[in-house]
């Protein structure tokens, strides 16, 4: 239980860096645990732990320097042939609520997991995609902003 919570916190930290949304906003989607357990469910805990460990290493190496952290994320995660595709999946999951089937080359090298196919994590995950607040909008078919709100310029928070 202890480690579960710890790992989840690392996952949250990682997600903040990957998405540029705050941990409050990420938790506010209610999807943190859903995504974490989806990954474990599809490709197993050890792969997840590898990603988290690589992130922890990246953080240690960056030593609080933001630019360096970005660089380290690319070194430890994004350009890593095993962890890169998983990391990109984490990003896409947060933004649109889908798990994407991993690339064929990954599946050939690291195993074709049975549950690894493209799917929507859940109906709620779809509606909680971060893509929509990013562009000052809302997911089609949910969270409607109200009559005639569409006549005004979108409110897009500058980042």
């Amino acid at each position: 239980m202890e480690t579960y919570q710890e790992n989840l916190n690392v996952f949250l930290d990682l997600s903040v860096v990957l998405t540029d949304f705050s941990s409050y906003e990420l938790q506010g989607t209610g999807q943190l645990e859903a995504y974490y357990s989806t990954i474990i469910d599809v490709i197993g805990e050890s792969n997840m732990v590898e990603v988290l460990d690589a992130f922890t290493l990246a953080k240690t190496n960056a030593n609080g320097n933001e630019t360096e952290l970005e660089k380290q994320i690319r070194i430890q995660l994004l350009s890593n042939d095993k962890l890169g595709p998983i990391t990109r999946n984490i990003i896409k999951m947060w933004f649109i609520g889908n798990w994407y089937q991993l690339p064929n080359i990954w599946r050939e090298t690291y195993g074709a997991y049975e549950k690894d196919e493209t799917f929507v994590v859940s109906a709620i995950a779809y509606t909680e995609g971060l893509l929509w607040p990013t562009i000052g909008s809302h997911p089609p078919g949910a969270k409607a902003p109200g009559y005639a709100t569409w006549i005004d310029a979108p409110q897009i928070s500058k980042v």
Binding site: Q27, G28, G146, Y147
Partner: peptide, 22 residues
């Protein structure tokens, strides 16, 4: 009134965010 009532949508979203954060 129409746009005021539209504000209810934000109230819901903001509530959910608060309620999901320990």
């Amino acid at each position: 009134l129409i746009s005021a009532v539209g504000g209810m949508f934000r109230i819901k979203e903001m509530s959910y965010q608060l309620m999901r954060n320990p």
